[in-house]
Amino acid sequence: MLFTQHLLALAALAVSTLAIDCPGSDTAGTPCTSGVFVLSARGTDESSNAPFQNGPNYTDQQGQQDVATALVNKAGGYCRSLPYAASPGLLYFVSAPTRRFNDIASINYGIKQGQSIIKEYVNRCKSTVNPRVILLGYSQGGQVMTSVLIGGQGYPTLEDYKQYITGGAFFASPCFVAKYPIDGGNSTTSGLFARGPISYNYFSTTYSNRLRNYCQAGDEFCAAGGFADANIAIHRNSVNTYKQEAINFLLPLV
Results as ranks from 00 to 15, higher is better:
179 K>G: 05
56 P>S: 14
236 R>A: 04
240 N>C: 00
175 C>M: 12
91 L>P: 01
115 Q>I: 08
80 R>D: 08
77 G>M: 06
99 R>K: 04
207 Y>L: 02
250 L>M: 11
7 L>F: 12
84 Y>C: 02
55 G>R: 04
229 D>A: 15
228 A>E: 11
53 Q>F: 10
95 S>E: 15
126 K>D: 06
88 P>E: 13
98 T>M: 06
238 S>D: 07
59 T>K: 09
203 F>C: 01
88 P>S: 11
197 P>H: 10
89 G>R: 13
239 V>W: 08
3 F>E: 11
59 T>P: 00
57 N>Y: 12
62 Q>P: 02
157 T>L: 04
244 Q>M: 07
212 R>L: 04
93 F>M: 03
202 Y>S: 05
28 A>H: 04
216 Q>V: 09
146 T>N: 12
137 G>L: 05
180 Y>I: 01
11 A>I: 09
104 I>N: 13
7 L>K: 11
107 I>F: 00
228 A>M: 11
40 S>P: 02
105 A>R: 14
23 P>V: 00
92 Y>H: 14
52 F>C: 00
14 A>N: 07
232 I>G: 05
70 A>Y: 13
100 R>V: 05
164 Y>Q: 07
160 D>N: 15
124 R>M: 04
143 Q>E: 14
193 F>C: 02
127 S>H: 15
76 G>S: 08
140 Q>G: 08
52 F>E: 06
253 L>V: 03
103 D>F: 10
118 I>W: 06
84 Y>F: 14
16 S>W: 00
233 A>I: 06
63 G>H: 04
180 Y>L: 09
177 V>H: 15
79 C>I: 01
129 V>W: 13
39 L>T: 02
170 F>D: 00
119 K>L: 01
122 V>F: 10
111 I>L: 05
111 I>P: 03
153 Q>Y: 15
64 Q>S: 07
145 M>G: 07
78 Y>E: 06
113 Q>A: 10
240 N>S: 13
20 I>L: 08
86 A>G: 04
132 R>W: 05
29 G>F: 11
208 S>V: 15
215 C>H: 10
208 S>E: 14
215 C>A: 11
181 P>M: 13
48 S>P: 00
91 L>H: 10
52 F>V: 03
112 K>L: 06
56 P>F: 14
198 I>C: 03
36 V>F: 13
81 S>Q: 09
79 C>Y: 05
116 S>V: 05
140 Q>F: 03
100 R>Q: 10
206 T>W: 05
226 G>P: 09
155 Y>P: 00
110 G>H: 05
151 G>C: 07
11 A>W: 13
44 T>W: 13
205 T>K: 13
14 A>M: 10
123 N>C: 03
65 Q>S: 10
143 Q>G: 01
86 A>I: 10
10 L>F: 13
67 V>P: 03
68 A>R: 09
29 G>L: 08
131 P>T: 11
214 Y>L: 02
16 S>E: 08
156 P>T: 15
79 C>F: 02
93 F>V: 03
141 G>K: 10
102 N>G: 01
226 G>N: 11
250 L>P: 07
187 S>T: 01
102 N>V: 04
